[in-house]
């Protein structure tokens, strides 16, 4: 009885929530696509500084990129643990995912603060506007993911995250990995490929 929703007849044999969620992710592609298109279309058109070359911190962002990648790994391991019914590993890997996600947010907090200190705000120039809105929107997604995964972690501590809830974890995982792939794109097109020669 506990899996009535899953056991329901469906036309495709697939979970309905999963179909809806992939549709949502498709929609998110267009959301981030529009933000990235705007960033790229405006790149190098700011009439005042600071410019990306002057201000983007590649070493720090490389580390935060790695952190987010590791959180994705922790997420898939958490899912396999849930499917196995391994409570200990479920908690371990969910904690790791949440921890890495929080670390990423801390890095972003540090980055935004240092940019503001160096004179780049959301209203300074085109770069500031497009950069902060794009990466801020991504950060907001990470924050929502951290809250979502924390909820799952609490459920796990309460022994309410058994194998029958694997789909709940899988869907949270889909969200989390998608946020990760968006960052993979942002890291490349915003941080690594910059306008003009890199000194």
């Amino acid at each position: 009885m506990t899996t009535t929703a899953l056991a329901h007849h469906t036309s495709t044999g697939q979970d309905t929530r999963k179909i809806a969620f992939w549709t949502f992710i498709g929609s998110e592609c267009m959301l981030f696509g529009t933000l990235i298109a705007t960033y790229l279309s405006y790149e190098g058109k700011s009439v005042t500084g600071p410019t990306p070359q002057e201000i983007l911190n590649i070493p720090v962002t490389s580390v935060s990129t790695f952190v987010l990648l590791m959180s994705s790994l922790a997420m898939v391991l958490a899912l396999t643990a849930v499917v196995r019914g391994d409570k200990l590993q479920t908690r371990l890997w969910l904690t790791a995912t949440v921890g890495f996600g929080t670390m990423f947010l801390a890095f972003q907090y540090y980055e935004f603060n240092s940019f503001v200190a160096e004179g780049l705000t959301i209203s300074t120039n085109l770069f500031g506007s497009t950069f902060f809105v794009l990466t801020g929107c991504h950060g907001l997604h990470v924050l929502i993911g951290v809250i979502w995964l924390t909820t799952l972690l609490i459920l796990s501590w309460r022994d309410q995250l058994g194998p029958e809830k694997a789909m709940n974890v899988e869907i949270a995982g889909l969200y989390w990995h998608f946020v990760d792939v968006v960052w993979i794109v942002i890291f490349t097109v915003v941080y690594l490929i910059q306008r003009g020669p890199v000194a």
């Binding site: 959301l31 696509g33 933000l35 700011s46 500031g128 506007s129 809105v133």
Partner: peptide, 29 residues
């Protein structure tokens, strides 16, 4: 709808926080 969502965010941010998305003086289009 995500496209108009982003466009409306740009518009409201321009109006509320002084971003430069549609500001010709700042190089915007």
């Amino acid at each position: 709808f995500p496209v108009i969502t982003v466009a409306l965010v740009f518009l409201m941010f321009d109006r509320m926080f002084g971003t430069t998305f549609f500001s010709v003086a700042a190089g915007g289009d």
